[in-house]
Simulated assay, not measured.
Amino acid sequence: MGAPNAPSPPRPLEEQWPRIRATIADATGILVCLDFDGTLAPIVEDPDAAMPTERNREAVATLVDTPEITTAVISGRALSDVRQRLEGPSIYAGNHGLELARDGDISVHPVAREHAARIERLCAVLEVALAPVPNCRVENKRLTGTVHFRAVPSAAVPTVRRLTHDIVDRFGGDTLELSPGKQILETGPDLTWGKGDAVEVIAADEPSETTVIYVGDDVTDESAFRAVEPDGLGIRVGGDEPSSASARVESPADVADFLSWLGSTGVDLLE
């Protein structure tokens, strides 16, 4: 068996309409999985200020009220954080899928639960070490930790990266790993689990003829794109970098356009 093809730049969404319509027409239902930051909410310098656009809030509410559609939010934020920023969906996954809320229950990956105390200690060390760096912020999400440097002066960014790598190597040992994102560094348990695994767990509860759609904007969404493509649809928000998603849109405003279409015209295509 040959190696899988390398990801290529996703095509603009408008070029994918025939395929999208055909995929939905062959389905009996739709599972829509949505990232939060950069997808439903614009990226902002202060993560605490991030909120979904009003049009995305309205579009998600329409999807939630549509019986043929199941809506899930899958975020790198802590579960409690993302749930309070957008109400309505029946399913939420936080910390890149390490936390999952559905059917009134919350499940936590057992390995992540075991390492929560280590993450807390690591975040405390990072806070002290990075305190002299202007506008650098360390976020303890209980199961993972994030170093935000979007607002850090460019000259200081290499220092943030170096200190973060050094501290995670020293205090995380072989049990924690560091991964990049959009002007962030995230640390969490060293295990093979991500948003794509959360999508697969959620999709397993849906009927077999369900079309799965995932919309996201960051490298942490790539495993979810791989989980849904090619039978479903992955939509990358942002530039035309190589991605496992097959379609792309420019911004959260375009996401609102697509979700609005899905909740009106798109659902009418279901067989």
Rank of each mutant, 00 (worst) to 15 (best):
G196Y: 11
V237N: 03
P230F: 08
G232D: 00
G104H: 10
L130Y: 02
R162Y: 04
E206P: 06
E222Y: 11
P189N: 04
R118M: 15
L270N: 05
I74E: 10
A256D: 00
F149H: 00
A61R: 09
V212E: 10
V64W: 02
D197M: 04
G94Y: 01
S264W: 11
P158V: 12
R57E: 00
R248C: 01
D205I: 15
G94Q: 00
L126P: 06
P89D: 02
R137S: 12
G104V: 07
P158G: 08
T175H: 15
T39A: 04
R118N: 05
G173M: 06
L34H: 05
G76I: 08
P12E: 04
G2Y: 11
E68W: 08
A155W: 10
G88I: 07
P18T: 01
R137I: 14
A22Y: 07
T28I: 15
D254M: 05
D197W: 05
D221H: 09
L34P: 06
K141N: 05
F258A: 10
R161E: 14
D231G: 12
L79Q: 06
A204T: 02
Y92I: 04
D103S: 04
R170A: 14
A41F: 01
K141V: 13
G216H: 06
G196K: 06
A41C: 08
G216E: 00
G172L: 12
V212I: 13
V60Y: 07
P89F: 10
R102P: 03
A49D: 11
T175Y: 12
E271W: 14
C136F: 01
I184W: 01
A131N: 00
A101T: 11
G263E: 03
T53D: 09
V237I: 03
D37E: 03
L79K: 06
C123P: 07
R113S: 14
P7E: 09
T220S: 10
M51I: 09
V255Q: 00
G88T: 06
S246N: 05
T144L: 05
A22T: 06
V267A: 12
V125G: 10
I43N: 00
T23H: 05
A198E: 03
A129T: 15
D65R: 09
D218N: 05
I30Y: 02
I119Q: 04
D218F: 04
